[in-house]
Nucleic acid binder design. Structure first.
Length: 464
RNA sequence: UGCCGCAUAGCUCAGCGGUAGAGCAGCUGACUGUUAAUCAGCGGGUCCUAGGUUCGAAUCCUAGUGCGGCAGCCA
């Protein structure tokens, strides 16, 4: 055995008459008198290989043990399939059972199981249609993202996962400590309460964003992006939140908010178009079984221009909409998801980029506008999921940034290096953040974020 | 963190105060080309846990645990 062999995806496109060998896991087997059909999948593509086994080609007890979940090697000739549902099939001359899967205890079934149950068997669910497709799309999307940035000469950078600055301000953080150890009986032991004695000599945490560090790399490499793990200790148990997720954060020097918006729009269109082209079978499955409007929406988003409007314009539209919203609309209010959905789904019907939010509802590092009331922030809102990207032009003026840190009630000292960027060769710069799993929810139509990552980490759950 | 819902066979669920049920899966058999194959038969239960009410609790009450949904927070 060698990895250098044909995958099922490869061999199914070979000409009829070719002698081939396939390795994979049995999806299902159907028996008739004198003939068996074994469907084999190796994850290389959505389609299963139908292996036709005539009587006595494989010993009866071997064939009988080729049950759902068993791993097999099948050898034979590729033939045109007389049945509907596949163009070619493998007419077996030889079959080997590599690893049996006791059908009495194997938990994956041919018929529907709940998402909750499949999460409990996350180590096996990848062998089913849905999760095979999810993780193929996840792979392709990751590749498309790197390709998008590399094609534009953005440098892929790595920002720290452990950070000693508790001032990133994007939510609750996980502490990292060697003073605190855990026994196998489930008891914690704290050797010293003083962080000064701890590994880093001060409190340390898992990162909630690489943005501030990415800014420093951008002010030297010009265009950079991160694509790495991010952690939030928020006790939020929703279909859209994870404690550990992957985030993409481009950052561009010599770039305004307009350039940032152009990048965000190009980015979404290109990644969607790439996945539409390269994962067509998987997306067709999602469109059929998970989200009926998936393909229509993705095709629309990848081709239509994004609408752009300011926060102030959006508030006016909402106020004159005649809709009765649960949360009140007024200038200064943070937009609720019901407001965002109305704008992007009902009013505009395609993605919308909202800009120039009140400074009070946005982060301190966003560039202050001339009006003194709004900042150069942007949110990309998309039909069906709402906010998918959040970004801004960064405040590059030393005095203004200093004042805004003070205004936000943050200590100035930890930001000494961030301020240095404004002290030496400061330039207008901008960037955005995108949650990879949220993008995958959009690409697949999957309704729960726990189902687009192999092993989810959420409050109370860190299995596998 | 707040509010709400759910927990019964391997899975998906019905039963809602009076002897534990169905479909699917599994097992046995039938069928020469199936596509979530079909058909016949068989086996399968700590009704989440601990208290309580009752002649009697899967069913009602309380607490706990687990899972999920929505909201907030955000990506």
């Amino acid at each position: 055995m060698d990895y250098r062999r044909q995958s099922i995806r490869d061999l199914m496109s070979l000409p009829v008459g070719t002698s081939v060998e396939a390795f994979g896991w049995v999806k299902t087997r159907r028996d008739s008198k004198g003939i068996s059909f074994v469907q084999v999948n190796d994850g290389s593509c959505f389609a299963d290989l139908q292996v036709v086994v005539n009587e006595n080609v494989i010993p009866a007890d071997t064939l009988k043990a080729m049950t759902t979940g068993a791993s097999v090697r099948m050898k034979g000739e590729l033939v045109a399939s007389p049945g509907t549902g596949q163009a070619v099939e493998l007419l077996a001359t030889e079959g080997e059972l590599i690893g049996p899967a006791d059908p009495a205890t194997y938990p994956m079934q041919k018929k529907g199981a709940s998402w909750e149950f499949l999460r409990e068997i996350a180590h096996l669910r990848v062998r089913g249609n849905t999760f095979g497709a999810v993780f193929r799309v996840r792979n392709r999307a990751a590749y498309a993202i790197h390709k998008f940035f590399q094609d534009r000469r953005f440098a892929y950078i790595q920002t720290p996962i452990i950070t000693a600055s508790d001032c990133e301000g994007a939510g609750a953080m996980f502490a990292v400590s060697t003073n605190l150890t855990a026994d196998h009986d489930g008891q914690y032991k704290l050797s010293d309460r003083d962080a000064a004695t701890d590994f880093f000599g001060k409190p340390a945490y898992l990162t909630v964003s690489g943005q501030l560090e990415a800014e420093t790399l951008a002010l030297g490499l010009t265009n950079v992006y991160t694509f790495g793990p991010t952690f939030r200790a928020e006790n939020s148990s929703t279909s859209r939140h994870l404690a550990e997720f992957w985030m993409i954060e481009p950052e561009m020097a010599f770039c305004s908010l307009e350039g940032d918006m152009n990048l965000a729009e190009e980015f979404l269109k290109e990644v969607i178009a790439d996945v539409l082209e390269n994962c067509a079978d998987d997306l067709a499955f999602f469109n059929q079984r998970i989200e009926p409007e998936l393909l229509q929406t993705l095709n629309h988003v990848s081709s239509a221009g994004f609408e752009r409007m300011t926060y102030t314009e959006a508030i006016k539209l909402l106020e004159s909409s005649g809709e009765s919203f649960e949360f009140p609309v007024f200038w200064g209010a943070d937009l609720q998801s019901e407001h965002e959905r109305w704008i992007t789904e009902k009013k505009v019907g395609r993605p919308v980029i909202l800009t120039d939010y009140p400074k009070e509802i946005k982060a301190f590092y966003m560039r202050l506008n001339e009006d003194g009331k709004t900042v150069r922030a942007m949110d990309v809102l998309a039909p069906r999921i709402g906010e998918i990207i959040g970004g801004s032009q960064r405040e590059e003026r030393y005095d203004v940034l200093e004042a805004r840190i003070k205004e936000a009630g943050l200590p100035a000292e930890p930001y000494w290096w961030y301020m240095d960027l404004r002290r030496y060769g400061s330039v207008p710069h901008a960037g955005f953040g995108l949650g990879f799993e949220r993008l995958l929810m959009y690409l697949t139509g999957m309704k729960n974020i726990r189902d687009v990552i192999p092993f989810h980490r959420t409050p109370g759950s860190a299995d596998f």
